[in-house]
């Protein structure tokens, strides 16, 4: 019995079923930073209707699958983003919006915004543009769905394996690291 469920072939079939469910049911955390949060309402309402793809808003990190970093991320917000990300349940995905999350964008010499998002939390899909329009956002979601189906969206695993590296980067930027104790 145990062997029947644990051999590689049945695991593969199970993964296909799981990934199909995961890719067609993406709950996005209703959390917006910067200017890109204004692109989310048109994306999920009548005009562009992201619910066709099973994309839906979730109110708390516990229920969400996708964390959208919509635009520039100040150091103060980064602290909250890390907490929200760590409270989400595996598997979880991160999408970076706009050039601000890729290389700082127009805030490249600002003292208060981070320049590379993937140094602090793992990013599965980047959408470039300033800001990306809802079409681009939906294209990004479709790309994320492809990655999930192929089993390549493994940022959450990467984060757990390289936690020390991420913590080091996070603590370099956040001077006063006072995170409350919580279990993930």
């Amino acid at each position: 019995m145990n062997r029947a469920f644990n051999d590689r072939e049945s695991q593969k079939i199970l993964d296909i079923i799981k990934n199909f469910a995961r890719k067609n049911s993406l709950f996005i955390l209703a959390y917006g930073t910067g200017c890109g949060a204004i692109e989310i309402p048109p994306t999920i309402t009548s005009r562009y209707d992201a619910e066709r793809f099973g994309i839906r808003g979730a109110a708390t990190p516990r229920q969400a699958d996708v964390l959208l970093i919509t635009g520039y991320l100040s150091v103060k917000t980064l602290k909250r983003v890390i907490r929200a990300y760590e409270q989400m349940q595996d598997p979880k995905y991160v999408m970076g919006f706009g050039s601000c999350t890729i290389n700082g964008g127009m805030y490249w010499d600002s003292y208060n915004t981070i320049k590379q998002l993937d140094k602090y939390i793992p990013v599965d899909v980047y959408i470039n543009g300033c800001m990306p329009r809802p079409e681009a956002v939906i294209a990004g979601f479709v790309k994320l769905q492809q990655l999930i189906q192929q089993g390549k969206a493994l940022g959450w695993k990467h984060y757990k394996e390289n936690l020390e590296w991420y913590r080091q980067n996070q603590q370099k930027v956040i001077k006063n690291w006072r995170m409350p104790d919580y279990n993930w």
Binding site: N103, D109, Y111, K115, Q116, K119, V173
Partner: peptide, 10 residues
């Protein structure tokens, strides 16, 4: 200078 010290560019 602050940015160069605290952040890294891609």
């Amino acid at each position: 200078q602050y940015v160069m010290e605290n952040f890294e560019f891609r």
